[in-house]
Computed example of a mutant assay.
Amino acid sequence: MILQTNRLRLRPWKPCDFDAFVQMNASPNVMRFFPSTLTPLQSIESARRLSEELQQQQWGMWVVEEKSTEQFVGILGLQQRSIDDGILTKPFKEIAWRLNERHWGKGFATEAATAVLYYAFERMHVDVIYSLTALVNLPSQKVMQKVGMQDTHANFQHPRLDVNSNLSWHCLYKISKQRWKAQL
């Protein structure tokens, strides 16, 4: 499944994406809102898993590429979260992204997220999409707001992070299909 916007293509993974993904995940700047950078092996394992999920489900974490250059921009898409993740008391779909820093500030995350929300609500018939990030991650919160998501004001300590970490406190945003349709 390929999604397209004016400037971007969200597509399945190709072997040539793995190197760009490894480099992106090794950047301290890109990974500043994560517990640590990833080793090349961790990135390759993650890319394989994400690629397989996307292929099997026809939704997941797409590779985002700039149409005009076919350059790897990052990844963006949907992840299935379970009760076992300790975030909500019900399973939910989360929209998430990670972009290479040379593509920041161009509106790519907002543009790609808008396409994924359209796909989730219109093609997958999802009722609500959530997004979460560390409270200190203001750039991602801005993207959430730009695509019409609202802060649930249900901040929480992420169960997989050290309680003493400045990243442990997270915010939770959401958008319903009804709200999304109303803002079109």
Rank of each mutant, 00 (worst) to 15 (best):
L3E: 03
L3G: 03
L3C: 01
Q4P: 00
T5P: 11
L8T: 10
L8D: 10
L10V: 02
R11N: 04
W13E: 05
K14A: 15
K14I: 11
P15C: 14
P15G: 13
D17V: 08
D17I: 08
F18I: 15
A20C: 11
N25C: 15
N25V: 07
A26M: 13
A26T: 04
A26L: 11
P28R: 03
V30W: 03
V30M: 07
P35E: 13
P35V: 09
T37M: 12
L38S: 14
P40W: 11
I44R: 13
R48V: 13
R49F: 14
R49D: 09
R49Q: 12
L50N: 08
Q56L: 10
W59I: 01
G60K: 01
M61N: 03
V63E: 00
E70P: 00
E70W: 01
F72E: 04
F72K: 04
G74E: 05
L76S: 07
G77Q: 01
Q80M: 10
I83D: 03
D84H: 11
G86N: 05
T89M: 06
T89W: 00
K90V: 11
P91C: 04
F92C: 09
K93A: 05
E94D: 12
A96C: 09
W97R: 06
H103M: 12
W104N: 09
T110F: 07
E111H: 10
E111C: 07
A112H: 10
L117C: 04
Y118D: 10
Y119Q: 00
Y119L: 00
Y119G: 01
F121T: 01
H125I: 02
V126M: 06
I129C: 03
I129R: 01
Y130P: 08
L132F: 07
L132G: 00
L138T: 13
L138R: 12
Q141A: 12
Q145D: 07
M149P: 06
M149R: 07
T152D: 09
T152S: 15
H153M: 10
H158F: 09
P159T: 07
R160F: 10
N164L: 12
N164T: 14
N166Q: 11
W169L: 15
L172V: 09
L172Y: 07
L172P: 08
Y173Q: 06
I175Q: 02
Q178N: 13
W180T: 03
W180I: 00
Q183A: 14
Q183F: 08
Q183T: 13
L184S: 15
L184R: 15
